[in-house]
Design a binder for these strands. Structure first.
Length: 916
DNA sequence: GCAAGGTC
């Protein structure tokens, strides 16, 4: 392997970054025979050259160790195609591309050339992943240009620790061309697709609309990329799910029982019912015969397992959850800690340790820590029985180990709070994953009341084990009293409680990372960049709770492609590319073949998207005013003025045709003003006339010439109609009632949020009816009430229009907004529901306005322990002194008869036997 | 001026 002779050979070593060159040189030069570590400057001020002697297979080497900074080369179009207006974006699918060393890397290039001329060997210490292999070939290209006779080797290492580095240098291999080819494919596809679509949509839309989010909309770039756009797609898709959510009331029976040992809370095993009457009947049965019989007592041991070893994405998700740190910042801090040697390489997909890893040594180093040192000591004590070999999560990038501590620190003076936090997370996570799971004893008690089943669960933690060190996780649970099979008791409370279904929450940063990971968008090193790009491009915003909302621009772009029928905003394209890249790196597909197929498909897609650019225009027109800078070729997409907006008193209301073909009259002040009038869904054509309505005020209100689809309106109506939206037009009003509106809410097609509806984690969405509500659009029609319930209207904003839209929640203190019920029994009825997550408070509007107390949960009733009168007792609104109380928040009978006296003319809360 | 991927 090595050349013979007594004179040392010279080897040029190249790492992917300066810190690795320094670290590896430091490790390899520790031996006294190295002659010590010398450092000299290269041409690039960041990339020093380290020198030392090293014996490799009994051959003395003089090592020069320098570095690049990531990719040395860039892929770009030939100069002729570089200017945006130099060519048709379509040409970018065939334009010649070249790989070259950019200006800011030319000093590194010169250093490599100079050093290569002096050497016989080239040893490549690039990171051991596909990108690293590609960079290796970039280095090879530069170095062999200077010296054709280099003997080229690859060092494969996965951590900057002595044993790894020595092993790597003693087991050199050849670089893998197939891995580098796979990256070449990816680069070229990304460049051609990204540049063509970005130029196309930027030049098409930027000048055509007033982009109010930017002070200089001429410089705005509406970028498209195969990673960033599907990432946006996830944000928009969730937003649409939330928008199309239809709140629905449900009812559930809750039972508690107090004993000397404490309180048990029993949950109804039916979960909850959406049918009010059914729930009430079952509830009445329970109250009439409230004796509970224990039907089952189950005790079992439960284990809560520690997390798998830490991968990048888990680090980002957990730092976001535990510390509210953005993924971008987490990676910056982790990089610092890595470069200072405190943690292993932070960009890894691997979540299992190799058998070669000395897991105990890593723990030993932490024994001296003032906080978790004693835990580390216990871990190493075989008597304690706390150790457990970590279970892997099944991911291995074959390049890096899971993130783990590599050097002990009790905190460095140069560290920020965030450095402390991330180091602590890495250490505690490591200690946790080599620990035994927590052990708990769980007791489940099932009872029967009048044929209805309820259950309560209690948990006692027997051994905390890993939870002792992993302070970020808890295992909730509480004791419940002891129950025996067939034991009977009377519940302390038995209540019929109501709630409303809620939409899933906006995507958090951790959710978004999870979506990207699942879909294979980006790498562990770039996922946070794609998220940041959405913010930089004004495609999305992040609120204080780290949750993402699409902006109008982001929503419009996704909507435009969606309306074209393209799933460019979904992750399938990337998934296909990823599988092709894998095939290239395995040698089962050739680079040229994959490139040709993929680019051919994308070119066809681009041509088609351009033909359908009207869809993008229409989607943008929903949110943005047209600019007078545009050439007007698509002017029909914007509506004409009908009247001044009566709500904001500032902007005009204009007639618009939506992408789905339906018509609406919307305020140009959107999104600040969400005033909208939905028109009948049966309208096929509509145009604003110069006729002014003589009845409605304040004027002028221009009338609209409508044409209706014959088959969609009753025979006694004309297909042609000159109408007014000011409120005077009974024909229009009747047709809205008969045909519904063209709003997204009452469309019969599934909502845009359909894709992920079934994957929601919202507890209140757990039955099939509520999931259906996400998928099916709303049914409220609003002409001429100017409700904002539409595609663009967030449900909670519907109530902010009339000044009496919210009341304080008497349950949790948050705010309740006014909403409209959509169940068969109560369609159109207004109610307030609490906005706070986890609070189910709601009250009908008429009851809430009655002042005084607003009963929680709409209806509640409780039976006390002392009620022994056949389940019947006296009711009392105060609920303090009587045996049985009943309250109805709805004020209407909930079943056909009073369960107290049996009289069908009233219900229990109005029973004359009350108070006797 | 555009992508995604490295890294400073």
């Amino acid at each position: 392997m090595a050349g013979g002779g007594g004179r040392p050979l010279r080897a040029l070593n190249v790492a992917e970054k300066p810190s690795v060159a320094k670290a590896v040189s430091g490790i390899l030069s520790k031996n006294p025979s190295s002659g010590g570590l010398r450092v000299r400057d290269g041409r690039s001020r960041y990339n020093k050259i380290f020198e030392f002697n090293y014996a490799l297979h009994n051959q003395q080497f003089h090592m020069s160790f320098t570095s690049v900074t990531g990719h040395l080369m860039e892929l770009e179009f030939d100069d002729r195609y570089r200017k945006w207006h130099s060519c048709d974006p379509l040409d970018l699918y065939n334009a010649p591309v070249k790989k070259f060393v950019p200006q800011d890397k030319s000093e590194i290039e010169k250093t490599l050339e100079e050093e290569a001329r002096k050497c016989q060997w080239l040893i490549l210490w690039l990171d051991c992943d596909r990108e690293g292999e590609n960079i290796a070939f970039e280095v090879v290209e530069v170095c062999t240009r200077a010296n054709r006779n280099l003997n080229i080797w690859r060092a494969r290492f996965s951590a900057l620790i002595d044993r790894e580095i020595h092993y790597a240098v003693q087991h050199l291999v050849r670089p893998n061309q197939l891995f580098a080819d796979a990256v070449d494919v990816r680069q070229e596809i990304d460049l051609r697709i990204g540049a063509s679509f970005t130029r196309f949509q930027t030049m098409l839309l930027r000048d055509a609309f007033v982009l109010d989010f930017s002070t200089d909309d001429r410089n705005v770039i509406l970028s498209y990329g195969p990673c960033q756009f599907p990432t946006l797609g996830f944000v928009v898709e969730r937003f649409w799910e939330i928008q199309s959510h239809e709140p629905e009331e449900f009812w559930t029976i809750n039972c508690t029982h107090n004993s000397e040992e404490g309180t048990a809370t029993f949950n109804w095993m039916r979960g909850h019912l959406f049918d009010y009457t059914s729930a009430t009947i079952l509830y009445e049965m329970c109250v009439q015969e409230p004796t509970a019989t224990v039907t089952n007592v189950r005790q079992q041991e439960k284990l809560k397992y520690p997390p798998h070893p830490l991968s990048t994405i888990e680090l980002e998700k957990r730092a976001s959850r535990y510390f509210r740190m953005s993924s971008e910042h987490t990676m910056k801090v982790a990089e610092d800690l890595y470069q200072a040697g405190f943690i292993s390489y932070p960009r890894t997909e691997t979540d299992c340790f190799s058998v070669r890893t000395d897991l105990h040594t890593i723990v030993q180093e932490q024994q001296g820590h003032p906080v978790w040192g004693s835990y580390a000591q216990r871990l190493l004590d075989p008597e304690a029985g706390l150790w457990r070999n970590p279970s892997g999560g099944g991911h291995d990038d074959k390049a890096h180990p899971p993130i783990h501590p590599t050097k002990f620190s009790a905190g460095e003076s140069a560290w920020s709070q965030d450095h402390h936090k991330v180091y602590e997370l890495v250490v505690r996570h490591y200690l946790a994953c080599v620990s035994q799971p927590a052990v708990g004893a769980e007791t489940t008690v099932e009872i029967d009341i009048a044929g209805e089943q309820f259950s309560a669960t209690g948990r006692v933690i027997l051994s905390k084990n890993y939870l002792d060190v992993y302070r970020f996780e808890t295992w909730g649970g509480s004791m419940i009293p002891t129950y025996n099979y067939s034991q009977q008791f009377t519940p302390t409370t038995l209540t019929l409680d109501s709630g409303v279904t809620r939409p899933p929450p906006l995507l958090s940063e951790a959710d978004l990372l999870g979506c990207m990971d699942k879909a294979g968008l980006g790498t562990d090193a770039t996922m946070h960049d794609h998220i940041k790009k959405l913010l930089d491009r004004f495609y999305a915003t992040k609120d204080s709770s780290m949750r993402f909302t699409p902006t109008n621009l982001g929503e419009a772009l996704v909507m435009g492609y969606d309306d074209m029928g393209y799933e460019l905003w979904k992750p399938y394209l990337r998934a296909m590319m990823e599988s092709d890249m894998k095939a290239v790196s395995m040698g089962t597909k050739r680079k040229a073949e994959v490139l040709e197929t993929c680019l051919q498909q994308m070119k066809a897609c681009f041509v088609d998207a351009r033909l359908n650019k009207g869809k993008l225009f229409e989607a943008m027109a929903v949110y943005f005013e047209r600019s007078n800078r545009s050439n007007g070729s698509e002017q029909h997409a914007i509506g004409d003025v009908i009247r001044k907006c009566g709500l904001c008193q500032e902007s005009d209301m204009v007639l618009r045709k939506k992408p789905d073909g339906n018509f609406m009259v919307g305020c140009l002040g959107y999104p600040q003003c969400r005033n909208v009038v939905w028109l009948p869904g049966s309208v096929s054509e509509a145009s604003v006339t110069t006729n002014v309505c003589s009845t409605c005020s304040p004027g002028p209100i221009y009338m609209i010439q409508f044409k209706f689809r014959r088959l969609e309106i009753p025979p006694n109506y004309n297909v042609d109609h000159l109408g007014c939206i000011g409120g005077c037009d009974n024909t229009l009003r009747q047709l809205v009632e008969i045909c519904g509106t063209g709003s997204r809410n009452n469309s019969s097609v599934p909502g845009r949020g359909q894709g992920q509806a079934s994957s929601s984690s919202s507890a209140q969405q757990s039955n099939s009816r509520s999931q259906g509500a996400w998928q099916t659009a709303h049914s409220a029609s609003s002409y001429p009430s100017q409700s904002s319930r539409g595609r663009n209207a967030r449900p909670q904003e519907a109530a902010t229009r009339d000044g009496e839209s919210s009341i304080p929640c008497t349950s949790c203190g948050a705010s309740c907004n006014l909403r409209t019920a959509n169940t068969a029994a109560n369609r159109g009825r207004k109610f307030y529901s609490c906005q706070a997550q986890g609070c189910n408070f709601f009250v009908w509007e008429d009851n809430a306005n009655g002042g005084g107390t607003v009963p929680q949960g709409g209806i509640s009733r409780s039976a006390s322990n002392s009620s022994r009168r056949g389940g019947r007792g006296r009711s009392n609104r105060s609920g303090q002194t009587s045996d049985v109380t009943f309250m109805s928040a709805t004020g209407e009978p909930i079943s056909g008869r009073c369960f107290v006296c049996g009289d069908p003319s009233h219900f229990a809360n109005a029973c004359p036997t009350r108070g006797r």
